[in-house]
Design a protein around this nucleic acid. Structure first.
Length: 578
DNA sequence: GCCGTTTTCGGCCCGACTGTTTTCAGTCG
């Protein structure tokens, strides 16, 4: 048996799709492998774990055949059928597939005709001007490949949500300056508030598309124009972000918004749903009985299909269409519902300072009042066990608690919690002894070390923390760092059950690289009645402004106000603590 | 190769844009 990561499996499926494409196999076979790859990339658990538990069938897109291939893969480390299909195809083509604008056919031709096996070979071929002489290629396609290769090398695959958000806001502001622009909105994964965003997509409503496109392509931040037509345009910004613009007249703006907000899975499901009632969907509207119906907003678009309007965050092809039909979509939690932020790091000196915040307790309180919060929690990191004796740790907590009591006394108009973010050590013990815990209003426990332990050990550590009566909240529960570190493996079902049993809450951490719990686990946690708290984990008061991103995670996890504890009044919320 | 409150067979989303082309194939979203 051999562990193989989802990422690797997805690539394997994509390679199979490409191989079948080159071989001109049945188109729908190609589709099936592409679907399987999508599905694996979005899976919440490692397929290897599911396979061990006999649960592979729970992942959509994996049918009888592919499940058997995976069985072979995990047992032997290879799939004979895949090797056979790919035999005779040049290996280099599969490397080239990752470059923008190069699909299966192009990759095959380059690898076969020019004997390109890797990126270096491709660079040489470009330098020697050999690509332009291939049949079906020319100077322009050679130039395009060269540009795409540069971007491939310098590019991060996806951008963190707040980064993409910031870029989009600037462009939206710029577009709105053009008089002919009625409305400009984000589209795609950005509008759905996915934790990482690939391209920034933008929709504009205007009667004069030509003028909008023209204005857009003159945006100062552009480094290269990928393409520009009468209703759409694609560019790459100097910071590497690709921006796609779509323009439609006001009477069809709703259709445009709907179509390009996606997700792909939502749209496919929606089109299949529409076909059953003899309607055909496109970015221009709904075709019904040979007539094209246009929609100025999304509400009327969905209404035409007999559906309630679906919030963008829910459009992932996870049963939202059925819920919209049954009028049973949840009323999602909103930023305005949030009454406090309890994971905040101050500059209170805990020596030796590790990961200290920038601001004083007073500054944090002032900022919280600006946000109209009803309560805050001071959650500095606990003193490290390696540098302190137990007595020293207790002494530090005593002194800090006295200081916090003063702050409480001078700020009677806001609730204040004396907390600490405490390490769950490798053996599952907390880094603060019980005598120290007793001095606090409650403890936030989090894993900050040994992320690579096996599933059983990590689960045990989390369960230990839940079972400790002083622990009220588990911070950033999966430990993932977007684009840097995978989540650690844990038996989440067991953790959820322990949370409910012990009254321990789980955090949705709004830190841009965390957004943890992830949306899919939020949805699972809610199903099991786990209470959640959305925090910013701010180490500097401006970072308290990241709250909207945590709220978006909750919304993507179908969370209502009732699922989020820090939507409660101070009177109710404090009952969770001492 | 997957999938199913109209199907275990017969379906499988729809269109823009580009380059190299005289009508289209490839790629992308």
């Amino acid at each position: 048996m051999r562990f193989i990561a989802n990422k690797e499996i997805a690539k394997l499926f994509r390679d199979m799709a490409a191989a079948y494409t080159v071989k001109n196999s049945l188109f729908f076979k190609v589709k099936a492998y592409e679907n399987a790859a999508d599905s694996v990339e979005h899976a919440t658990s490692e397929l290897y774990d599911l396979w061990k538990e006999g649960e592979l069938g729970s992942v959509s897109g994996l049918g009888k055949n592919i499940q058997e291939y995976l069985d072979e893969l995990f047992k032997t480390g290879q799939i004979k059928h895949f090797s056979q299909v790919m035999s005779g195809l040049p290996k280099g083509m599969f490397t080239l597939l990752d470059i923008g604008g190069i699909g299966p056919k192009t990759a095959y031709k380059l690898a076969r005709e020019l004997k390109i096996e890797n990126i270096k070979d491709l660079q040489k071929a470009i330098k020697a001007k050999r690509i332009r002489n291939l049949e079906g290629f020319g100077q322009k396609s050679e130039k395009d490949i060269a540009a795409a290769l540069l971007e491939f090398k310098g590019r991060e695959n996806r951008h963190l949500l707040p980064f993409a958000f910031e870029n989009a806001q600037k462009i939206l502001q710029y577009l709105r300056k053009e008089k002919e622009c009625n409305q400009a909105e984000p589209l795609g994964s950005l509008r759905r508030m996915v934790s990482t965003v690939g391209d920034v997509d933008i929709a504009v409503s205007s009667k004069n598309a030509k003028k909008i496109i023209n204005h857009f392509t003159k945006y100062a931040g552009i480094s290269r124009i990928l393409g520009s037509g009468p209703v759409s345009s694609s560019v790459i910004l100097k910071n590497g972000v690709q921006v796609d613009l779509k323009v439609q007249p006001p009477e069809a703006f709703g259709s445009l918004l709907q179509h390009f907000t996606g997700s792909k899975n939502h749209n496919i499901a929606l089109r299949e749903f529409a076909l059953k009632i003899n309607m055909s969907l496109s970015e221009y509207g709904i075709k019904y009985k040979g007539k094209l119906l246009k929609f100025k907003d999304e509400e009327s678009f969905y209404k035409q299909l007999g559906l309630d309007w679906i919030p963008p965050e829910l459009r992932e092809g996870n049963n939202e269409i059925n819920a919209a039909k049954a009028h049973s979509l949840p009323t999602l939690v909103e930023l305005n519902d949030i009454k406090g932020d309890i994971h905040l790091h101050s500059n209170y000196p805990i020596e030796p300072s590790h990961d200290l915040g920038e601001n004083s307790f007073e500054e944090i309180v002032t900022k919280a009042k600006n946000y109209k919060y009803k309560y805050v929690g001071f959650s500095d990191h606990s003193p490290s066990v390696s540098n302190h004796t137990k007595l020293q740790i207790i002494d530090i907590i005593k002194r800090r608690s006295l200081k916090i009591e003063q702050i409480k006394a001078s700020n009677p108009d806001i609730g204040i919690l004396n907390l600490l973010e405490i390490d769950i050590l490798n053996d599952g013990e907390l880094s603060v002894p019980e005598k120290g815990l007793k001095l606090l209003d409650g403890a936030i426990a989090g894993i900050h070390s040994s992320h690579k332990q096996d599933k059983a050990t990590i689960t045990r550590r989390l369960l230990n923390a839940c079972e400790n009566p002083y622990v009220k909240l588990i911070s950033h529960p999966t430990g993932r760092l977007l684009e840097q570190r995978e989540s650690y493996d844990a038996n989440w079902l067991q953790v959820f059950e322990a949370c409910v049993k012990t009254g321990t809450m789980l955090e949705i951490n709004s830190w841009p690289t965390r957004l943890d719990l992830p949306d899919v686990l939020v949805k699972e946690a809610i199903k099991h009645n786990v209470k959640l708290v959305i925090n910013t984990d701010a180490h500097e008061i401006t970072q308290m402004g990241n709250m909207p991103f945590g709220v978006s995670v909750a919304r993507r996890g179908w969370a209502t106000k009732e699922n989020i504890a820090n939507t409660l009044s101070w009177l109710e919320f404090r009952k969770y603590f001492r």
